[in-house]
Design a protein around this nucleic acid. Structure first.
Lengths: 201, 201
DNA sequence: CCTATAATCAAATGAACGTTTGATTATTTT
DNA sequence: AAAATAATCAAACGTTCATTTGATTATAGG
């Protein structure tokens, strides 16, 4: 063991945050290792000490951190066991506030995965991530189903409703800028309001 | 003049379509000139005969073609002068069917512009495109405003409603695959239904 | 105080890619 | 059929990276 002194050493998490920011700003291919490294005061080569598998591994780590964080919050909301309408509202809020407050989450949701993940030489990691994303979508769908079954929501095309809702939510990460007219929470409330109105019987 | 014979010559539009497809599949940075060229049976260098300004010019051409096409349709819908609820429904349909049927439109709407356009050495072209995109958003907003004024729609946060709607629409280009459960038109109808329900007084 | 090693850097390596260049071919125009 | 030129290609160029390598530095454990 050696070399853990405060201002000389950077840890994995700091790198992950820096990488998330750069990926979101420039996209996977537009982000250079030097960009990410300089954000934490390192040189490109030094990143390989923390992420031996290189750039693609860094991407997967960011995406997983993001999906983990959001899934954790979503599961907490569901576990609370409120009625479907209230649960759906909290779900939307957790999702959107996650996006506005945590770069990794925004990156994980909207990322140009089509392109980027294919370039990753790690198909297992890619598949695992995509499965978790599907999981996320399923939670949404189930809450809507429950609401319909309970007679709280009117009948809608489940698949399309879920996609529309996810689209509206994820799109926030495309246009949101901190310091704008509304906070993440306010945006979340308004969007939840729209979709819950759409479900009124 | 010379060399316009059928099977030896490729025209600008064919290149544009090929480029739109490759851009959408791989993103701007992931798309190589060779990818685009081979799709129309040319070599990379040959593209410079048709687009002397190179790759970034090609991107702008694709984006403009897409936004032009969708604006044209949207303007036709508005010009028809139907009441706001009907107009909004037609707007959503024009938008989504545009996305599912015309690759350039999908590319123009969803593209990772943050990243890509900054790499373009053509700031005027970039600004012009972004202005047209704003124009597009304004049409949506105006129809909703009209509906509220006319007492047809309930009161909602204009900015957020519009962003949510655009997000749901544009997101279609992320998940839509031809030959799926629903056609573009069916998807459009269902999404229009969701947002019109959300506006019910 | 050594010694092993965690953490870093500067520089080298090699591949990928946008773009340029100079020929080549085919077609129109005269 | 000449001459002019549109359309194309193959090969070369130069740059920008991701990644590797080998040295260097600082600290924890003995």
């Amino acid at each position: 063991m050696a070399r853990k002194p405060a201002d000389q050493t950077v840890n994995r998490d700091e790198i992950l945050v820096a990488a998330a920011e750069v990926f979101q700003e420039r996209g996977y291919l537009g982000a250079t290792m030097a960009d990410i490294a300089s954000k934490v005061g390192l040189t490109a080569g030094s990143l390989y000490h923390h992420f031996p598998a290189g750039k693609s591994d860094l991407l997967l780590a960011v995406l997983n951190a993001g999906i983990d964080a959001v899934l954790r919050e979503v599961d907490a909301v569901i576990a609370a066991g409120a009625p479907p309408d209230e649960t759906l509202r909290h779900l939307i809020e957790a999702h959107i506030i996650g996006i506005t407050d945590n770069v990794s989450i925004g990156t994980a949701m909207v990322f140009d995965l089509h392109a980027a993940l294919d370039l990753t030489d790690n198909p297992e990691g890619k598949d695992a991530f995509l499965l978790r994303r599907d999981e996320f979508e399923k939670r949404y769908r189930r809450v809507v189903e429950d609401g319909i079954t309970a007679g709280l929501f009117r009948h809608v095309d489940m698949g399309i409703f879920t996609k529309a809702l996810l689209g509206a939510d994820n799109w926030v990460s495309v246009w949101f800028r901190p310091g704008g007219r509304l906070t993440g929470k306010q945006i979340a409330e308004r969007i939840a309001d729209i979709f819950l109105s759409a479900l009124r019987c």
